[in-house]
Each structure stands twice: as C-alpha cells, then as structure tokens.
Design a protein around this nucleic acid. Structure first.
Lengths: 108, 108
DNA sequence: TTGACATATTCCCGAATAGGCATATAATAT
DNA sequence: ATATTATATGCCTATTCGGGAATATGTCAA
C-alpha cells in the first residue's frame, strides 16, 4: 500500500484548484467543454480529464447536445464537504478567543 | 510543472481521510500525539507527519507540555473551506428539483 | 462517404504522496 | 551521565497525480 483513497472521493476531487475553478464556472449554468477551456485557459485534454474526475464523484453532471457535452455542477454533491466543515463552526468563536489568549501568554 | 498547489493548502490537507479523522479527534480538546496514535490506530511516525502537514497550513496548533506536544484543531482555518462550499448552498434545493426532472425525462 | 468539429483517451514524464522502518531529537527521571 | 519516554525526521518504495502531445472516438454537415 502507498497512497490513500485517491480521487474517488469528493474531498480529493475538490483539492485540485483547477477543479474548484471548473465547479465555480459550472455552478449556475451548463456549459460545453470548449467554454470551460476558453474560460479557464487550460488545455482541452486537461479539462476533459478534470471533468472525468468530477463526474466520477458526481460533482458534475453531463448531457449530450449534438457533438457537444454540456456539463453542470451538481451542487448537491458538495454538501458532505459543507457538512463536515460545519462541524467546526461552533468552535470558531470560542477558538478565536483562545488564540488571542495564547498569543498573549506566549508573549510572557 | 507537474502537480498543483500541494499540501500547503487547506483543501489538500483535508483531502486525506486520516487527517480529517485527526482534526475531528482534536476538535474539542488538545491531546498529545500518543493519544492520537492510540485513538486512530495509526503508526506514530505517520501521525507526526500528518500533524506536520496540518500544522503547516495552520489547521492545528501545538503547545509543548514537558516532553509531550499537545495538538488541537484550529477550527478557524477550516472556514475557507466552509465558505467555498457555502457558495453552492443556494443551488442545492434548486438542483434537487432539476435532478428529478432529468431523471423523469430520461425515463422517456 | 468524407471532412470538420468537439470531446475523450492514451502514453509518457517529473513531481509529489503516504506508509513502513530505522533513527534522530527532546525532555524527564534515576 | 544514562536510561526512558515522547515525538520528529530521514530514507525508501510503490503509487498516484497533472500536464503535454498525439491520437481515438463521436457527431454533424456536405
């Protein structure tokens, strides 16, 4: 064994900055691959590969339109991530206070 | 160039399941490394390495206590992730509806 | 059918990864 | 000083990754 879970996982899929950019771009409306390529300035094969990863974890959905493929972000698939992050939400205020205290005690 | 941003990035740091487990475990109170090792059943060097990555992106903070190091999750550092995910929050309800429509039209 | 267009896939590469293991560093106890 | 405990680091390997370039697949138009 060497590396963990790999990208068949939402957290991993989203770890790639370009993929986040793609998700942002496809959030509101469906777009063909070519537009993603133009918008993000990436190479077409690169975009296709990223879209494949995103598709595999259901972060985007596809639809064929003639010879084009229309992709759109499946926001629902981002929920697990949001929920996990929310777990820590309550601690923010509390910890901000603690951090200040720590900073001051370090300056002993 | 070969790979993107790497783990000097919160999204990447959190992509590793074990690291998320560590963050969960250290969320409420600070703990020495040994306890993380016992709790998660990982090898000690492995835990130390994960903690290093988490420290580098400020997801945990450390404090020395005698010969032990007390780690604790810095929930504040998870905010960017939460905020990014929140971007898509509004679309959830809307998309759930769309997905249903799609499912029905596919069953043409 | 042939050609043009849109997208996907394959192969190659260098870089980065996590884990296993041995060892180094740090701090206390004797 | 030395042993012991707690943690960190270094090295090694197999695996994975993203990008580039070339090519395959699929769809429409003529």
């Amino acid at each position: 064994m060497s590396r963990a879970a790999t990208s068949s996982d939402v957290f991993n899929a989203v770890a790639e900055p370009h993929r986040r950019a793609i998700l942002d771009f496809l959030a509101t409306e469906e777009r063909p691959v070519g537009e993603v390529v133009r918008a993000l300035g990436l190479a077409q094969p690169s975009v296709s590969k990223h879209l494949r990863v995103l598709r595999e974890v259901d972060l985007v959905c596809v639809r064929r339109d003639g010879r084009r493929m229309l992709y759109r972000t499946n926001a629902e698939a981002i929920r697990p991530l949001h929920q996990w992050a929310s777990t820590f939400e309550r601690l923010w205020a509390h910890q901000l206070r603690r951090i200040k205290e720590r900073a001051e005690s370090k300056r002993r």
